[in-house]
Amino acid sequence: MNNNKNITVKQAIDRYIESKTAVLSPSTIYGYKKANQRYLYILHDVKIAKLDQKLIQRAINKLSYCYSPKTVRNAYGLLHASLQMFAPDFVYRISLPQKIKSSFYVPDENEIKVIYKLIKNTELEIPFLLASQCGLRPSEICALTKDCITADGLEIRKAVVINEHGREVYKPPKSYAGYRTIPISPLLRDKLMNTPDKKRICVISSNKISRDWNSFLRKHGLHIFRFYSLRHYYASQALLLGIPQKYIAELMGHSSTYMIEKVYQHTFPSAMEEFKVRIADNIEKLLG
């Protein structure tokens, strides 16, 4: 710690973020800067040489009263990475808030059909189809151009994110696994090719998609859920169709099946009822 005894926590975090600017996405850097300003200000003026475990734990405790465990853990992760860079010999043990198991609402097939009838021929139709039928992230939807449509399907080559200045920036997919080709039907291919813009498939931003999606659900008295949940619907439907998890992960741009196993395995009431009927039928066949 002696080499950086005059550096404050804020300076250490700022320098850490600056060192990652060339390798991390603009949206990640923006998130780091926001977390630094919003959550870690408590420690900003403390010099690293004066920092101890008690001060860090006190700051984490204060954050835990106001924010979710995920937010607190993410803020601590940024602090820890910065201290590792500028004070690698500083050893400390911090108790973090316990993780809360995430719960996801995922619409079933009947809900998707109802939504599509209402959303058809609106500005949200294309984003809705790309999320629910292709499993695309909003950032991937907004980056699609007509030349992404090939004979093999829909090629995912880039994403659009919002930088710290509120501007759209194109970047490569989240990881190497993000480069992929999604199978699409001839009807969907025609819809995508015939969108009004000559180049882009979706001309509205990811932020506008989220805002308009919430407004659409409220307007029609539908259950409110995040637009991103349509991606979960795609994964869950693939599971119900019996597609191996490895292939689902590849289609969704994941490098492993971890997210499929931990996040996307939802059971739909309608599907569960169907399975119950099948089980009862098997019993009848045995006894009959």
Rank of each mutant, 00 (worst) to 15 (best):
Y176K: 05
L40A: 05
K113P: 04
L286G: 07
I162L: 06
F275N: 04
N3G: 09
I156Q: 03
I112C: 14
K199V: 06
N194L: 11
R38T: 15
A143K: 12
T122N: 00
P269H: 04
L51M: 02
P97K: 04
T145R: 06
I13Y: 13
A22H: 14
S27R: 02
I115L: 07
D147V: 08
G288W: 04
A235M: 02
I182D: 09
L63E: 12
I162E: 07
F90W: 04
I141W: 03
L154I: 00
A177H: 10
S19H: 15
D281L: 08
F227V: 01
F275C: 05
Q53A: 08
E155T: 03
I204W: 03
V161R: 01
A249P: 06
Y179S: 01
R180S: 00
S256C: 05
V169G: 12
L217K: 07
L40K: 11
E18D: 14
D197I: 03
D89P: 05
I56F: 14
Y176E: 12
L24W: 05
M272N: 04
Q57C: 10
L241D: 07
L129P: 07
A238V: 02
C134D: 06
T150Q: 00
Y264D: 04
K117E: 12
L55T: 07
K158S: 15
V91T: 08
V263S: 03
P127R: 02
K62E: 04
F90V: 03
Y32P: 10
L83M: 04
A49L: 10
S185Q: 08
Y39I: 05
Y247A: 10
S229N: 15
D190H: 10
N121S: 15
S175Q: 01
E140N: 09
P186G: 06
